[in-house]
Design a protein around this nucleic acid. Structure first.
Lengths: 346, 346
DNA sequence: TTGAAAGCGCTAACAC
DNA sequence: GTGTTAGCGCTTTCAA
């Protein structure tokens, strides 16, 4: 089966010919450039429109060195946390009139390196990325060429603008919430993607425990992959080791959901026998039974600030985007996994 | 704060100079083109590598008219169904060595049109899209220029390759499952994004009910937005109207999760008083209580076939991608929301 | 096998 | 105000 002849691409010269002007005049009209008669511009634009002309962004980008595209390096968006961040970046970019190229990584250095290379090669105007495994020097190398904003970088942050979900603040909100309800024997379900023990949820848990003299320590932390299955296993292990615990603080909503399941199987009622708090504020937390109290995140703010930083960097140079790491605010959403149906309604 | 001087971009000419050949020879080496001495190629490549040269994809695309990029037009990936499809497309594209530009739509004609235009203007080599609101003629217009694959197009399918999740087959699997368990009074929770009553879950439900002489009809269907809240409301309404129902077939997992919640509030035990089946096979279905039986979808297959179609179209012309709509297989995952814990274990 | 010339479609300096 | 002349960095004829 033969292909239909592709219609020859309409170029700026075709428009020029049809409008009876030189093709640079068309360029001026299209770009709203100065030094062109208003009437001429209108006429040219009308002709272009009538012809159905669309400028080639490729050719334009080649000369302007701007693609009006940003890159996003991100891991499995089947994880609701990443899905929300991605959605936020997509929306912020659209508002800013930018396209988004998404490069998938799988939480490995090789993947992150490939993603970075792909995006740079494509000529994106800036990159937003979860790039935890790429060496600092490599990031620096990229940042010398184009705006680069890191998100939730766990390893020691390089001199590159970074946006972090306020994990410490969020952890504090979650734990204060539990403390306020009278809990003291609080276990923690930690997740493995965290950078060993450097994760701020982890350190905040320990710090707050010391600070308040809680009868818990590192032995009350159980680490598993940050999935529902991981949460289930971690809960089982913790229940075996610390049978007197009355509350659980989870790395994320997925693990918290797994915890609910494990508690149910163990015959413990939630929240009466054991309260549970998740992290991420994903919709999933509303769907568990009981619904999960969780630390919610301002995803839209994250997306917007990432694009802001890139914009400032483009406009004012790298210095304009410098500064201390940005913290993205969190807030606690109380639900029945901690406070019970009755108190929520009151 | 001043910007560091950006290092001048390395071009093919720099490599040529360093290697002592003309720059076309470099091009040949880079593109593995014929008519070049093997030794020369090796030497040129070594020099390019040593210099850290990276070809400009932009310049290359301008002349080859291929960007090695595909476009994906998709709605809110915070919805797990779309997240899975997106992930599948990203992975299939990466395997094929293609980049992906994601254009967000919000289930409106204006958004879908914008997304389509954006992607076409960018010069993507092909488009995969959820484009339900764009007129058939417009799609045809795009398809004359580049490969276009639709996904789950509900409106009468135009002469453009379309991949559909096998909603009819999936619905049948879900309903047969319930029938096999002895259910007859089966209600349906329909979702609004469906194209009125044309959705195959809906029509299959009615067809099967007639076929098997079930004591149910259109009055046993309740339609709400396809969210957990929608599922909750639809369930409440249905329980009020058909208090004798013993099972619910939901539009998707989100609505099914809402149904579980509504049933619990109404004091009905699941599955003993009322069984529930969801659709989409999202991880969320494992996290509800009880875990949801659901119709799972071969997302990876969907992504791969979409890229296959684009590849064939590119290679062999539009005809090579023509054919009847592709159906993406589904299978039923039985869980405790229908069969109870005991039978599952046996 | 290699090099020279042309041009992809556009913007950005200059002239007029 | 408008047209002319150069490129952006590459691939692709065409000669040598």
């Amino acid at each position: 089966v033969a292909d239909q002849a592709e219609p020859a691409r309409l170029t700026i010269r075709d428009v020029a010919r049809a409008a009876g002007v030189s093709y640079q005049t068309v360029s001026r009209a299209l770009n709203d450039a100065p030094g062109i008669d208003a009437a001429t511009r209108r006429r040219v634009l009308a002709v272009a429109d009538g012809l159905g002309y669309r400028p080639s962004r490729l050719a334009r980008s080649l000369v302007t060195r701007r693609t009006e595209t940003i890159g996003l390096a991100v891991t499995a968006i089947t994880n609701p946390f990443y899905a929300h961040v991605t959605q936020a970046v997509l929306e912020a970019a659209e508002t800013a009139g930018l396209r988004v190229m998404v490069a998938p990584t799988r939480w490995s250095e090789a993947d992150e390196e490939t993603a970075l290379e792909t995006l740079v090669d494509h000529g994106v105007d800036g990159i937003v990325g979860f790039l935890d495994h790429v060496a600092e020097e490599r990031l620096e190398q990229v940042a010398r060429r184009l705006p680069l904003v890191l998100v939730n970088r766990w390893t020691p942050p390089p001199a590159i603008p970074t946006l972090n979900v306020d994990l410490a603040g969020g952890a504090r909100q979650a734990l204060e919430h539990l403390l306020g309800l009278g809990h003291e024997r609080i276990g923690m379900l930690d997740g493995t993607p965290a950078w060993n023990d450097g994760d701020r949820r982890h350190t905040t848990y320990l710090a707050l425990a010391r600070e308040r003299g809680l009868p818990v320590d590192a032995g009350w932390i159980e680490r598993e992959p940050d999935s529902a299955a991981g949460g289930r296993r971690a809960t089982e292990a913790l229940l075996a080791r610390q049978p007197t615990l009355t509350a659980l603080f989870a790395f994320n909503d997925l693990m918290a959901a797994g915890a609910l399941d494990a508690l149910r199987r163990a015959g413990r009622r939630v929240p009466d026998d054991c309260a549970v708090v998740g992290f991420d504020g994903t919709p999933l937390a509303e769907l568990t039974s009981p619904p999960l109290s969780t630390v919610a995140i301002r995803y839209e703010e994250l997306g917007q600030r990432a694009l802001d930083l890139i914009g400032r960097w483009q406009a004012g140079g790298r210095g304009a985007a410098a500064g201390p790491d940005g913290l993205v605010a969190t807030w606690l959403v109380p639900r029945e996994s901690t406070v019970g149906a009755a108190s929520l309604r009151s």
